[in-house]
Simulated assay, not measured.
Amino acid sequence: MITLKKLSKTFQTRTTSISAVDQANLEISQGEIFGIIGYSGAGKSTLIRMLNMLERPSSGEVILAGNNMASLRGKRLREARQEISMIFQHFNLLWSRTVAENIEFPLEIAKVPKADRQKRVKELVELVGLKGREDAYPSQLSGGQKQRVGIARALANKPKVLLCDEATSALDPKTTDSILELLTDINQKLGLTIVLITHEMHVIRKICHRVAVMEDGKIVEQGPVLDVFRTPEKKITKEFVKQVIEPEETMETIRELLGKDDGGTIVKLMFMGENAEQPVINELIRSYHVSVNILQGKVSKTRDGSYGTLFVQLEGNDDSVKEAIQYLKGQQVEAEVLEDDK
């Protein structure tokens, strides 16, 4: 569906040049929800804007739905863009138009007959959960409702690809989850390919099939979300994974214990797939001469399966602790003994 080949974008200033995207290579499949994550300045917004040629690349190729986007101009580019829609962090709604009129706007531009426009608006209002709010103005809507209008408007012309530029960054956590659930539902019902950029690993974890991590304009790591959570390779990827699995308050407690002579052995456990739901700790306590103090634990879902993290304090003699850790590893549990980094 989408192929990026050595895609680069350089911005020129009076005194220097800035490489916003550097030799990016990606393959995104039809019907996939693909996440691109990075901190501010990583180049992710520039990258996503090159997919529909809002930014033209300095070099490289963007192949989207069979079109070499960088080679298109004028009418051919406008036609290709009909298959790509975009939603934004700050909604970009027309404040003088109602919900229905905002959704209808791209259909007016496309010169769709009025009866067909009204039918399509009705379908979309129901799809995004705004039935009964058709005549409301944006100023009368919550942030989540405004984004639902933005999503409905983006779907008006039945695109093949939906680009999401930090679409949940302006929303509170509960509203963010509701919008992510809506995007998942749209993806499943319409078979729509979704590309989203974010700086929040929670968003990636919640709905994406695969993820690419960007740093300083480069794609430094990519793969299935569950694999990236299990074995992050780059330092920046590990930082993003920690957003979800290592709450700061837990890490403060762990650092205090690591600084004590009698703090026991602190072990971080990661359970993947079916192992995340097995009573491994129960068997550990029953079979080995160690005390287990659970410091923090969590089981979460990705699109491809469950994963769990558990921080435990093991107390006992050295041999018993070693045997317990070996047992855990034998149960296909990743066990990392944490040490004081001072």
Rank of each mutant, 00 (worst) to 15 (best):
L183F: 05
I186Y: 02
V220C: 03
I219M: 13
I207Q: 00
T193R: 07
K218W: 15
G191V: 01
P224I: 13
I194G: 07
H199K: 01
E200D: 12
E215V: 11
H199C: 04
V213N: 00
I197V: 09
E215D: 15
V211P: 01
L182I: 00
G217I: 11
K218R: 11
I204C: 04
V213M: 02
V220Y: 08
G223D: 03
G217H: 09
V203M: 09
T193C: 09
L182Y: 04
I197Y: 04
E200F: 12
R210T: 12
H199L: 09
P224M: 13
V203R: 01
P224N: 15
I204M: 03
T184D: 14
K206V: 07
M214Y: 11
T184W: 11
R210A: 12
T193Q: 11
R205Y: 06
A212K: 03
E200A: 13
Q222W: 12
P224S: 15
T198H: 04
D185E: 14
P224D: 12
L183I: 02
A212V: 13
V220G: 02
V195N: 03
V195A: 11
V195M: 04
I219E: 03
M201G: 08
H202P: 12
M201W: 05
L183M: 10
D216E: 13
G223W: 01
H209E: 04
E221Y: 05
V220I: 08
L182S: 00
D185R: 15
P224T: 14
H209Y: 02
V195P: 05
I197H: 03
Q222C: 15
R205D: 01
N187L: 07
G191W: 06
T193E: 15
K218A: 14
L196V: 03
I207L: 05
K218I: 15
I194T: 04
E215F: 13
V195I: 08
G191A: 05
I204P: 04
D185H: 12
L196W: 11
V211F: 05
H202L: 11
T198P: 05
L190T: 09
A212Q: 06
M214G: 06
V225D: 03
T198M: 10
I204F: 02
